[in-house]
Nucleic acid binder design. Structure first.
Length: 282
DNA sequence: AGCCAGGGTCTGC
DNA sequence: GCAGACCATGGC
């Protein structure tokens, strides 16, 4: 991976990366495609417009400083995914998923934002999750220079009541969002501590939040804390497990199970040939 | 109209 | 420990 500045933009040469798959595979909910093929969104309180042209990723109006301080880490660009993919491809199913969706990287999202958005994700679909998250930011985030909004900190939501979240139309999830915000803002759950905690302990602690069960906890750990062994199982992964892994997901690949899971998740959701139709229902 | 969505809680056995 | 009702909302 190498990069250079050009006319105020930052250009990264990065083979085997898919920007659209990475931003649109259901791991984050804050980037939207624009008409020219680029994506616009906000992460870590900063707006970004970014576009892929062949093997180049163009970070518009981004200095080397900003790139190195923020986006290099956010897009996990210092990790050698080829090595991981090579290891995971010893498994035939993951190999297939890799060749289809291997351009995905696990984004290093803000822990609070990942936790909160995956609380919203429960029993919900991705387009509507995006809508609710967007309204959450518009109503309670800070307006940025681009006219878009940052993700509201837990402290901002901790003092609200469920009815205050009515504009989000998040339904029964409103009370969960507020309970999470209160536990984070009060320090009852210390997010930086979770980062360095044994994963089993982190799971249990996260699940003391109302609305956080096993699946949301795993998503939080994988996408908000970069725990690559976290393995979220939703309805799609259940289908994959019953079809491909009748004896369970192989222990050998657990270390990178979360990354494999993301390849498989994107593969079976969007590739019509991945699993037979009868496995798509129930 | 009914089913489904990156599920979880609560109740009853 | 486990099944089943229920939970809001919107797209198909």
């Amino acid at each position: 991976m190498n990069y250079k500045s050009q006319n105020g933009d930052l250009i990264v040469n990065l083979p085997d990366f898919s920007l659209s798959d990475t931003l649109d595979c259901g791991q984050c909910f804050r980037f939207e495609p624009l008409e020219d093929g680029s994506f616009h969104g906000v992460a870590k309180g900063r707006p970004l417009t970014v576009k892929q042209e062949n093997d180049n990723i163009i970070f518009f109006k981004t200095s080397e400083q900003d790139f190195e301080d923020v986006w290099l880490e956010y897009f996990d660009l210092n990790t050698d995914y080829n090595q991981i993919k090579e290891f995971l491809s010893e498994d035939e199913t993951i190999k297939k998923a890799c060749s289809y969706a291997g351009g995905i990287r696990i984004l290093k999202q803000d822990p609070w934002e990942a936790l909160c958005t995956f609380i919203i994700s429960q029993n919900n679909n991705i387009p509507r999750i995006k809508g609710i998250v967007s309204r959450l930011c518009e109503n309670f985030g800070e307006k940025l220079s681009c006219g878009c909004f940052s993700f509201p900190p837990a402290e901002k939501l901790a003092c609200l009541y469920p009815e205050d979240l009515a504009p989000l139309r998040s339904g029964f999830r409103a009370k969960y969002i507020i309970d999470a915000a209160q536990k984070i803002a009060s320090g009852q759950i210390d997010l930086p501590k979770i980062q360095s905690m044994p994963i089993e302990q982190a799971r249990k602690l996260l699940m003391t939040i109302k609305g956080v069960g096993p699946k949301v906890a795993e998503c939080s750990l994988l996408f908000g804390f970069y725990k690559t062994e976290a393995f979220p199982i939703d309805v799609w992964m259940k289908r994959a497990l019953t079809y491909y892994y009748k004896d369970g997901f192989p222990e050998k690949f657990r270390k990178y199970g979360g990354i494999a899971q993301q390849y498989i998740f994107h593969y079976i959701r969007t590739c019509k040939d991945a699993i037979p139709d009868e496995y798509r229902k129930k």
